[in-house]
Design a protein around this nucleic acid. Sequence first.
DNA 1: GTGTGTCATGTAATCGGTTACAAGGAAACT
DNA 2: AGTTTCCTTGTAACCGATTACATGACACAC
Lengths: 356, 356
Amino acid sequence: MKPATIRDVARRADVSVASVSRVLTGAGPVTDATRKRVMEAVEALQYVPHSGARSLSTSKTSTVGVILPDLYGEYFSELIRGMDLAARALGYHLIVSSSHDDAEEASAAIRSMRGRVDGLIVLSPHLGAANLAGSLAGRLPVLLMNAGADAGRPSIVVDNHGGAVAAVEHLIATGRRRIAHIAGPTGNLEAEARLAGYLEAMAAAGLPTTVVDGAFTKASGHEAGVQLAAMATRPDGVFAANDNMAIGAMLALQEAGVRVPEDLAVVGFDDVPLAGLVHPGLTTLRINIAEMGRSALERLVKLIQSAGAADADAACEVVRPQLVVRPSTNPATQNPTRASRASAAAAVPLPEGENP
Amino acid sequence: MKPATIRDVARRADVSVASVSRVLTGAGPVTDATRKRVMEAVEALQYVPHSGARSLSTSKTSTVGVILPDLYGEYFSELIRGMDLAARALGYHLIVSSSHDDAEEASAAIRSMRGRVDGLIVLSPHLGAANLAGSLAGRLPVLLMNAGADAGRPSIVVDNHGGAVAAVEHLIATGRRRIAHIAGPTGNLEAEARLAGYLEAMAAAGLPTTVVDGAFTKASGHEAGVQLAAMATRPDGVFAANDNMAIGAMLALQEAGVRVPEDLAVVGFDDVPLAGLVHPGLTTLRINIAEMGRSALERLVKLIQSAGAADADAACEVVRPQLVVRPSTNPATQNPTRASRASAAAAVPLPEGENP
DNA sequence: GTGTGTCATGTAATCGGTTACAAGGAAACT
DNA sequence: AGTTTCCTTGTAACCGATTACATGACACAC
């Protein structure tokens, strides 16, 4: 028993398919009598329009694709959440496709989106992917995220450089001088911008630099923390290129008997929900991730709706991270009392739902 | 400049559309000469097949829809990750649609999937949604998750009852007697099953019960923790209906000066990544969430591919959670040394990617 | 030379909608 | 009554692919 088509409905209501379509889409004039007959037939046959077919004739899918390198962790889950929220509100659907680390795979994924989506959001933290998106998507509107300052294409990027400078300046302001950096993976544009910001800010302050390699994972942060703890002249401040590594490093340091923040202050980047919950709470540069996702989707939809109109919204929106100070750098709250801890929690409300 | 269609390619290669289709799909016989000509035309025109059109004629979309109540937090993000992984491997795409708390909205979401997907995975923690899925999806294969033991439909459910019993028995085994329960939201089938398991296990042991209300959020757990700490005869053990609440409660208890696990042991449910990182590490019932997502998707695809064939895989697969003991209930590791904390971390490897 | 089998190719129907255009009917006007 | 106008409805083309079936060419056997 196959699902009913618009022709079945037309036959049953004894009208033409055009009339059924008009009733269902709300476009075009119909008398109340026919409308009623059509609705009854729809009801009786449990008819639901076939969106695939509709897409084909209107060349609109009301769907956007999201191409991600990966889907692990809170960063991307928050991002998707924000996008999904905006998508619902605008009547769009979301196709997610992740785990595209290498360019070849990402290219295939983009290609397979043709005819399935009206536009794409591409997160490409690696070099070259930006070009990819442009060349492969045909005439699909594409919004780039985290792709470095790729001029000439609509994009949203985080001010990684500025954030890193702010992190270092904060550490200096709290009296730290021997400040190390735990870097992200090479080739990742965001990691490189954060490193550059660190180097620049240190140079500006006339301080010597120390860089330890990392890979954006908690494990790599832990490893870096072990190295830092074992150094002859141990740093008294660390700026990690993301929260995950900062948290990993903090654990390693504490295991080695180094007190945070008394002996060594730690700053992360991103403000993932976890950052406010670890002990001590992590000072970090907050990006409102969900909000960024929402904004990205809304912008893409705007691009889609104004497609063709070359009023060229090729702007590169810059999101400026905001410094959130928590006990990991603030000796004033080094032994968090009940009050201070509670207030820290209150200051950083976590998005939460009724998950089991 | 519109993207090229199969007819453009055919014209340019001076063959029929049928031949182009045969070359591109790999089906049907073609000489090397025509294949070459077609490929050249494809290359020259940058042709990419329109998957929407292809779907219409083959009535296959290679896409599955996932209907979620919400997208917050690690539980669902892990679930989606598992599904996405499996989907890629099987050549499927994933449409996610979340935030459907009320039945009406969920029903609309399911309806809008017609013609867009080949099958659906529906997570319906609330009563009635199960029926919904059945009645609304037309003849789409549907896989239910967490919908209670809804016989007669393919589904995957967690053995919440059994897990709850295990949690209580573990607390009893470690010498606790005054064991309270922080319940999940009423109406949520999973929460109710966990509550029932708690009540039953306590009754079996001849112990009195205490139930505090919660809502599966960290905040509600915190509130419950405050209540517990203030009780005249304070419990010496707590089983929370999920990790989020357990963590919230643990924070509240510590703020009130109650030592965990010495004064009071805490057990959660789910084993979200965070559970192994809080202090003290949280004993919990582990569900391999990503794995469950993967398995769900694979099963749905199997359903799709064998559609029609009424060999009726209407089985209800049961996932049994596994007790993971961490310091929150184990006084032996109450002051975690470096070694013990490191081993705890090692025992619970976290999935991690290169997120910024 | 004719018959037959094989195999590559082309033609046209089809999937399930939307919509331009034509046509029909009733109301309103002269 | 005849004509104009407006409004509803129907017919059929179209979106971009797949594919059943028909066709034509060629080789081989008789």
